[in-house]
Write a protein that binds this DNA or RNA. Structure first.
Lengths: 129, 129
DNA sequence: TCCCATAATAGTAATGATTCCTATTTTAAA
DNA sequence: TTTAAAATAGGAATCATTACTATTATGGGA
């Protein structure tokens, strides 16, 4: 139960902190192998899950069916470009008021929400003109 | 390319319209087999995807990693109970204003968003007291 | 510093949802 | 009625993720 340090976990987290593009487990694996050649894919998955569970990173699930990971654990929102697939952080105010909107007239207890936006990113919008 | 009628597709859509609990492809398969014993799972998947693509049903993706389907194509929001897994339709006003919030200061073009809420449903909240 | 219980790993097998493949059947327009 | 195109059944293939297991690494206490 007690967490023990592992160099692999450290390397995974360090790598994720250098990236702002919300990589998948496989991308993390590919890159971390440069520095740690015989790390196993299972170890990458296990540690990404673990880090997400203890709140050190965020697991993101869009509709491409693959998990993405983000070292930025602050509350923020994401945009997914439907053309190039790029995932971009949005600078915008909190949407937490939608919890109150949802809770009005609902018998249960709302503890959180998942929101992301999609459309064309700046580049793809230009190219499509 | 031209769509042709198929009894299987009809049965799938008819079944989905009787349900308000957003079943998965497998649940649709299990149930539809009562009426159509040798329909194949592939046919269920193909038609659910097709119906979603042409907008006759909605495909919903929460974080259980399985696609859910909804015959109600009107804009509405969903709640997922983290305890019992139940998916409930929420009666609430449109959140479309969050598109404007997101678009302010964003270079691309936002075309839509995905939002769902999670927490404890009415029943699980009671049981947990 | 040395033990040693236990956490973590590497490597690989297993899982499970979904998609793909192909021979056969169904649909619907001419 | 003919027939080209669309759809199906059944099963194989895919692919992200998790599980399994023998081995190795970590770290608190003597």
């Amino acid at each position: 139960m007690a967490l023990k340090y592992s160099r692999q976990r450290q390397v995974i987290k360090d790598f994720l902190m250098t990236r702002k593009d919300h990589p998948t487990a496989d991308t993390v694996y590919m890159n971390v192998r440069n520095e740690y050649p015989n790390i196993s894919l299972g170890t990458v998955y296990r540690n990404l899950s673990l880090l997400a569970d203890i709140g050190e990173i965020q697991r993101l699930r869009f509709d491409d069916g693959v998990d993405h990971f983000d070292a930025d654990t602050s509350a923020h929102y994401h945009f997914v470009c439907t053309q190039c697939g790029q995932i971009i952080d949005l600078k915008m105010d909190s949407l937490d008021h939608i919890i109150d909107m949802a809770e009005a007239g609902f018998a249960g207890e709302i503890q959180g929400y998942v929101t992301y936006f999609h459309g064309l990113c700046g580049n793809c919008k230009k190219v499509n003109l």
